[in-house]
Lab assay of single mutants.
Amino acid sequence: VRQEELAAARAALHDLMTGKRVATVQKDGRRVEFTATSVSDLKKYIAELEVQTGM
């Protein structure tokens, strides 16, 4: 499950970095929206997932 969450989070980051205004991911069973202003929060979430998956 964590691998899927990590892939979704990375895709969301890619979307935001390429101009999409809002990206949505499932985080702990709930839907979370990230915007360009919350990229740093999304990067932290990705880092947490990488630690949890041993990457």
Rank of each mutant, 00 (worst) to 15 (best):
L42Y: 00
V22W: 05
D41G: 05
K27D: 03
T53N: 14
D15F: 04
V1D: 15
A8L: 12
Y45D: 01
V51L: 14
D15G: 05
L16R: 00
R2A: 13
V25W: 00
G19F: 00
Q3S: 13
A23H: 02
K44I: 10
G29A: 04
V39E: 04
F34C: 06
M55I: 14
A47S: 10
G29T: 03
K44Y: 06
A8W: 07
M55F: 04
E48I: 09
R31I: 15
T24H: 12
A12K: 01
S40N: 15
E48A: 08
S40M: 08
G54A: 06
A12I: 03
L42T: 00
F34Y: 13
F34M: 05
A11Q: 14
T18H: 14
A36L: 12
Y45T: 03
I46A: 01
R30V: 15
A7Q: 12
Q3C: 13
R2T: 11
H14Q: 11
R10S: 04
A8D: 08
T37C: 11
A23Q: 03
S38W: 01
A9Q: 00
R21G: 12
V22Q: 07
V51M: 15
L49A: 02
K44S: 10
D28A: 05
T37M: 10
G29L: 02
A12H: 01
E50R: 04
A23V: 15
A12R: 02
A12P: 00
T35N: 11
V32F: 09
E5P: 06
A23F: 00
T53W: 11
Q52L: 15
T24R: 06
L49T: 01
L6E: 02
V22P: 03
L16Y: 02
T35A: 06
T35G: 06
K27S: 06
V25Q: 02
Q26C: 15
A47H: 13
L13S: 00
H14P: 00
H14I: 10
V1N: 15
L13G: 00
A7L: 12
M17V: 09
Q52K: 13
S38F: 03
G54P: 04
A47N: 09
A7D: 13
R10C: 08
E48K: 06
L6S: 01
S38V: 05
E48N: 06
V32S: 04
V22F: 07
R2L: 15
T18G: 09
E4G: 12
D41R: 04
A23N: 02
G29V: 02
E33H: 06
T37Q: 13
E48Q: 11
V51W: 14
V25N: 02
E50A: 06
A7E: 11
T24N: 07
M55Y: 03
D28I: 01
K43C: 10
R31L: 15
G19M: 00
T37I: 09
A11N: 09
L16P: 00
G54L: 05
L49M: 06
M55A: 13
V39S: 04
R31W: 15
K44A: 15
A11E: 10
Q26R: 07
S40L: 08
R21D: 14
L49G: 01
Q3W: 14
K44Q: 11
L16W: 02
E5F: 06
T24V: 15
F34D: 03
K20T: 10
L49D: 00
V22S: 13
V51I: 14
M55S: 14
L16V: 03
V32Y: 09
A11G: 07
A7H: 09
T53V: 15
V1S: 14
E50C: 05
S38E: 15
K43G: 04
L49P: 00
S38C: 10
Y45F: 09
T24M: 08
E50D: 04
E33L: 05
R21P: 15
T37H: 11
L42C: 02
Q26L: 14
A9V: 04
D41W: 05
M17Q: 11
R2Y: 13
E48T: 07
Q52N: 11
